[in-house]
Write a protein that binds this DNA or RNA. Structure first.
Length: 506
RNA sequence: CGGGCUGUAGCUCAGCUUGGCUAGAGCGCUGCGUUCGGGACGCAGAGGUCGAAGGUUCAAAUCCUUUCAGCCCGACCA
């Protein structure tokens, strides 16, 4: 008998976090790198999690008055030239379509032909094309607000890619709204940030900090960028969603004008906001452990997997029938407004092997059912937020009737754990030595989890950028939830009344 | 786009320095048997034009040239 390894994932988080991440993506069968440079294939388990995210978000968008539409993948290059800062921000990472045909090169190969008069850009984001249409659609204050969202893929030609966190092509949603007044647009920007934060915390069980980005980190062309920032288990921050107040920058560039109630011509106030498949990466790094992924119940493709323990005797039929009964009873229950999602895994695999597959995929609840359980009318239940061997027998009817409570407990527990991890990794720091110390690993040669979130007073000064660069630290945001008093800028010692959240980041 | 490295089975790699017979291992896969509530074992098998093109040679995974692709480190990023 080979001794089983201690953990399903090797290396562990402590040993090599980036490698652990990749191994979890693989072990949980979420996605794989594709033959196409920088692009990933999202496999059914990973896509299903994304679908559940989409579903929850889409419902929230609609509850806040938005509707879905779809705009073209291609953007004429001239459209992108209109907003100067926007161009500069995205020009370096645009895929460009210059031809519309292929022809034989005479040697069995193909070559592009039919050059386009004007190149088309594969959208890196859609402000440029959507604004162009809004300009046509908006004539009167009666046409406002326009509150549209689209689910789409976008392409940004990144130099280095990591599954879900940064890929050349990714899936996302982008909301684009236009308003008659500044106040209304600002409120929209803030509302959508709150929608994201609510989703992150209550669905993903991932605590986030809401805040505003500083000028350097702002979306190209925006007046203000708000973001939600989450802390991963390696103590690096992940920007999980952004909401931009675009002011009139885009409407001036794109001539999005309307006549107001007094008959005067005015430029619309616009916003845009988005979250992407990057959230799946955030989910992995928030909850995953050394046995693989843990999916919060509200987003889990499967809530419960039933694993029949079959022997080579005549108990098989009884066990399978019992499994069906348990399945039916579970599916009759409601969790989070939907029927509980259950699978009886009858594949012809060894029990241990099968169990571990589901552990690695992060299914919240596993139920082993064998002759013993049929005999005692009970279920042998394991929770993914607990150790693989912490399984216990529960009377069948009690288990099936309280499944929603159990799933709710797991959801809450995951959030509580994540919040506690963040709390442990958060410090208020008021001098530069401590700051350097906080972000410097103890060991030189091995990778080490270190750092976290540092709350510090700061000012936009000359000293800050070089120190941050040296430490590979970034200013994540100016958090909304902090009420600053009087402090001193960490970098200059000058008086400051602005608190920033600093962290190493993805 | 600068610096370093790697392309050999589905995956991870050995073999290359010093050219030589039918190109290997582990994992995975298929079959049979024993197993099965913490990741099994035994036996038998399938699977490769050694990234591509050209050259040197009696002989090339191995040496030379060209080329393509990928990875890592820098500048950029949801």
């Amino acid at each position: 008998m080979a001794k089983p390894p201690q953990h399903a994932i090797s290396p562990t988080r402590n040993e090599d976090y980036p490698e652990w991440y990749q191994q979890v993506v693989r072990a949980a069968d979420l996605a794989e790198i594709s033959p196409v440079r920088g692009c990933m294939v999202i496999k059914p388990w990973g896509y299903s999690i994304w679908e559940n995210m989409q579903q929850a978000l889409d419902r929230k968008f609609k509850e806040t008055g938005h509707v879905n539409a779809y705009f073209p993948l291609f953007i004429p290059m001239s459209y992108l030239e209109k907003e100067a800062a926007h161009v500069e921000g995205f020009a370096k990472e645009c895929a460009v379509v210059t031809h519309h045909r292929l022809e034989s090169d005479g040697q069995g190969g193909l070559q592009p032909a039919g050059p386009l008069d004007e190149p088309l850009i594969v959208r890196p984001t859609s402000e440029a094309i959507i604004g162009e249409l809004y300009a046509k659609w908006i004539q009167s204050y009666r046409d406002l607000p326009i509150l549209i969202n689209q689910w789409a893929n976008v392409v940004r030609w990144e130099m280095r890619t990591r599954l879900f966190l940064r890929t050349t092509e990714f899936l996302w949603q982008e909301g684009h709204t236009a308003h008659a007044t500044e106040a209304e647009a600002l409120e929209e920007t803030r509302t959508m940030l709150d929608v994201y934060a609510d989703f992150a915390e209550n669905y993903m069980a991932m605590p986030v900090i809401r805040g505003e980005k500083t000028a350097e980190e702002r979306f190209p062309g925006a007046v203000a960028t708000y973001s939600i920032e989450a802390l991963m288990q390696d103590r690096k921050a992940l920007q999980a969603g952004t909401s931009h107040f675009l002011g009139q920058n885009f409407s001036r560039a794109q001539e999005i004008k309307f006549q107001d109630e007094e008959g005067k011509e005015a430029y619309a106030w616009t916003t845009s906001w988005g979250v992407s498949t990057r959230l799946v990466g955030g989910l992995i790094m928030t909850h995953g452990d050394d046995d693989g992924l843990i999916v919060p119940p509200r987003l889990a493709p499967l809530h419960v997997v039933i694993l029949p323990v079959l022997r080579d005797d005549d108990s098989t039929t009884a066990v399978l029938e019992y499994c069906q009964r348990v399945r039916d009873a579970l599916m009759a229950q409601n969790y989070d407004g939907q029927s509980v999602r259950v699978l009886v895994d009858q594949r012809d695999l060894r029990g241990g092997e099968k169990t571990w597959q589901h552990i690695k995929k992060g299914v919240p609840v596993r139920v082993e059912i064998g002759p013993r359980d049929v005999e005692s009318d009970s279920c042998f239940v394991g929770r993914r937020d607990q150790g693989p061997k912490e399984k216990k027998g529960i009377p069948r009817s009690e288990f099936t009737s309280t499944i929603a409570t159990l799933l709710g407990e797991i959801q809450d527990n995951l959030y509580a754990r994540a919040l506690e991890r963040r709390r442990e990794a958060t410090e208020k720091i008021d001098n530069l030595d401590d700051f350097r110390d906080f972000f410097t690993p103890r060991q030189k040669n091995t990778s080490e989890l270190h750092g976290g979130l540092a709350y510090c007073y700061f000012s936009e000064c000359e000293e800050m950028p070089s120190i941050l660069k040296e430490l590979k630290v970034t200013l994540r945001c100016v958090p909304f939830d902090e009420t600053p008093g009087k402090g001193k800028c960490l970098f200059t010692g000058n008086a400051s009344s602005t608190i920033g959240v600093f962290a190493k980041a993805y």
